[in-house]
Write a protein that binds this DNA or RNA. Structure first.
Lengths: 342, 342
DNA sequence: CTGAAAGCGCTTACAG
DNA sequence: CTGAAAGCGCTTACAG
């Protein structure tokens, strides 16, 4: 910056004002300074800016997953990609961290806060009794909780923390759409192979399924929770199909379990969709790659990430904390669902 | 830090020395300072350290993929997870970026360098005529290239750049192992559905396949390149199987294409592995979830990430640039491969 | 072994 | 509209 000031024949502060679009310099000076800066390929040192109270220009994202479940999530990279579209436009960096569990995640937040490494964070996988919002609130670290913290599916009247927004997914409505679709085909016995029991969205889906089943008079409907792995997905499928009143349709909370489940059906001599309909919650290349191609709920992970990042940017800019609804996932009907036999 | 100095009754510099394990303070003082710092939950501001010439304490990682291919890669999250194990131990952050292509990736490196945001980077997906090593070298940004830059599979005599190491995968040997395994089962007509033609490892695998086929006297062997998508994987399979001399085995460069290919075979009335053997290059939950479960090459992505990060840390510490070999991928034989009929 | 001082590269009141 | 100066929170020669 000294260089620029010298070459442009102005003071350092003039350079700072010019480059940051602040009033206090003439248009002509601003242009000249800009030109010199571009010529030199100059970019403000993030460290220096941060030290002068401008914030770290960085957003944090922690993924807490046991190593085993990692890489199964087709959702995640697309979600991050959406986040980046927004952040990079604003020259914000994304500090990314993979940890083993919630406790370590909280430690990471504390560390980032103490080191002033991030200006805000995006929180994923909200849980029942989640300790993270309260922690972030106490640290005063702006955050966007992705997935919504509510359990019963009702939108909140107001955001409970001053700098924590949430981007809510209407799992209840989505589950309703799936169940109604299956009921419309004639299915009465439906099993839901859910994900981790501690997650808020798992609870929401289970509750919604139960409510829908009651409303539509489908008593044979139930949910079982898993760890999202192909092993537990297969096992749950095996148990369900081996029961006395086997389901004619199964809803899986992710794509890998859906594929595993379809495989188990095949192994047991059943044909998809003739003997068993399969729905995957989460569309991906995987759902299109298998044979038959899987009917799936498509969430547009990229748009989702974009939305979350935009909300965090708004929060960092002093915007109010909000509880934002997301567009409902769309059911993409493919070849794995049909009317039950008989 | 001022606070700590006051409470411990020493000067700020003493605090700095004590906390950074530098000589210049007595053991007693060091202990006292440490205690006060812990009490206050103090952590050095990364920005301030960076500004004092300590580096950004951050490592960069750019993933250049078209949005469409994103999320297909089970490899990536595990790789990142391995990187993190090493970085977090050393209190290094990971700045992560997803971009659309190589040009944008280079722009990101320039920006990071100018803003002094990272101390080094990990480079993935080395390409033929890759512009990145030269760029990073000119910027003086330490880097580890993951996958190796060589095309012909020969280890390099020396690292060509002073601060760029590479972690090399022996694709040639791995391909050799797969081909020999298939040849041992009796396969003569093998098709390799490869990934993007510009990538170094694609070229290495194709070259190795050709060499092996020549050595083993398998003239009907060939490679076709794709964009890694399930669509192109399926299409390549369809074309291959519809030909006059259809292959009895297909090697796919990723897991999603392997699944798609197996689906196409099924659709065409073929049974895997009776009529067609399928091998996936990259093991994942996916390979275990499908039915039949896929024989796959397992690379241990986590260990790979760990290795890359360790090498970058060594480079940042002033270590020499090296060309490191990685353990060869292991062939995990499952249910998708068998002797050809007849 | 310890303290006072300069400096890293910016931003921002404060005078001119 | 412009310049000289202080300050952000550290590290590091340099005196004592």
């Amino acid at each position: 910056m000294k260089d620029i000031a010298r070459r442009a024949g102005v003071s350092e502060s003039a350079v700072s004002f010019a480059l940051n679009d602040r009033p206090g310099v003439s248009e002509a000076t601003r242009r000249r300074v800009r030109q010199v800066a571009d010529q030199l390929g100059w970019r403000a040192s993030t460290a220096a800016r941060a030290l002068s109270g401008e914030g770290a220009a960085t957003v944090g994202l922690v993924l807490a997953r046991p190593a085993r479940t990692l890489g199964v999530e087709s959702f995640f990279l697309q979600f991050v990609s959406g986040i980046q579209e927004v952040l990079s436009e604003r020259h914000l960096g994304l500090l990314f961290r993979v940890v083993a569990g919630a406790e370590e995640e909280c430690a990471v937040y504390r560390g980032w806060w103490a080191e002033q490494r991030v200006d805000g964070v995006i929180v994923v996988d909200p849980q029942i009794g989640d300790p993270r919002p309260a922690l972030l609130d106490s640290l005063g670290l702006p955050a966007v909780v992705v997935g919504g913290r509510d359990v019963n599916g009702e939108p909140r009247a107001a955001a409970p923390y001053p700098v924590i927004s949430s981007v809510r997914v209407d799992d209840a409505a989505a589950m309703g759409a799936v169940v109604e679709y299956l009921a419309g085909l004639g299915h009465r016995r439906v099993v839901h192979v859910a994900g981790l029991p501690g997650l808020a969205h798992t609870t929401r889906r289970i509750a919604s399924l139960r409510a829908c089943a009651a409303r539509l008079g489908m008593p044979g409907v139930r949910s079982v929770t898993t760890d999202y792995s192909e092993g537990q997905g297969a096992e749950a499928t095996r148990l369900a199909l081996a029961g006395t009143e086997p389901p004619t349709a199964i809803i899986y909370d992710n794509d890998v379990m859906a594929v595993a489940g379809a495989g188990v059906a095949l192994e047991m001599g059943l044909t998809v969709p003739r003997d068993l309909s399969v729905v995957a919650w989460e569309d991906s290349a995987l759902c299109r790659a298998t044979h038959p191609r899987l009917t799936a709920l498509d969430r547009d992970a990229t748009a989702f990430g974009r939305r979350a990042a935009e909300e965090l940017v708004s929060l960092l800019g002093g915007g109010p904390a909000r509880d934002l609804p997301q567009p409902m996932p769309q059911l993409v009907v493919r070849d794995s669902t049909a009317a039950p036999r008989g």
